[in-house]
Design a binder for these strands. Structure first.
Lengths: 117, 117
DNA sequence: GATCTATATTCCTTTAAAGGTATATAGAAT
DNA sequence: ATTCTATATACCTTTAAAGGAATATAGATC
């Protein structure tokens, strides 16, 4: 069942935060690092985990690895990401991450090719 | 995050099957056993796991333990169960379980207090 | 009170994930 | 060619989950 793989990805708080931020648009590792306030290894490993299961895609831009949600998500993935968006609206952690993203987006756009303009 | 606990419950195929069947109504362990074709320990342990995290509720009727989805699910749980229902429509395993349930429901209703009439 | 039935729990083994430290890699800049 | 920057990987330790075998429990029946 592909569904199980999706849920495996969703059952860690860090990964949920990554996906929540990604719903706003592509981003690179160092910016995730700054927004979540977590060490590089942790971010990098969780993104690798998500990537291995098809929940995110990557594109290299020079030194930066820009992660994004899949361009063509499966029915199941689309449904679950929408559900997550719905559930995340109220959670303070998710909201704080998005607030930080919004605040930093202009600088991000200057210093890297993250499409977070 | 309560969300994580929900996803932890959803990231096992057996538990997904249990929840899918439960969406049709309360059921007791031995009937799950028959429908899923899995040993008693396995069913029982996964139901305990779900129960410990609030995804199911139990009521004893004589020797039978009748499991059911929560009477008053949280917003998050409701959303995710609905999403699961949506995703499960097409999966052959889920469909087979429901077919077996439908076929056996009359007998279940005779031999136990499972409300599966 | 002994037995039967449905279910839960204990114990064990195996596997996987998480987090951290240290190190490697790939491309850019000098 | 060396150095710098962003990111990935390897290695280690700890923790949790899964599955099975055996056993315990609680209520019903005889």
């Amino acid at each position: 069942m592909e569904l199980v793989q999706i849920y495996e990805c969703l059952c860690d708080p860090t990964r949920l935060r990554l996906l929540n931020v990604l719903a706003q648009g592509p981003l690179c590792v160092c910016h995730f690092q700054e927004i979540l306030g977590e060490p590089q290894v942790k971010i990098s490993k969780h993104l690798a985990y998500l990537r291995a299961r098809g929940l995110v895609e990557v594109e290299r831009h020079g030194n930066w690895m820009v992660y994004a949600l899949p361009a063509r998500p499966s029915r199941e993935l689309k449904a679950n990401l929408a559900c997550l968006q719905d559930c995340a609206q109220e959670d303070p952690v998710f909201k704080r991450d998005l607030a930080r993203l919004k605040k930093r987006a202009p600088q991000f756009a200057e210093t890297s090719p993250c499409g977070c303009s």
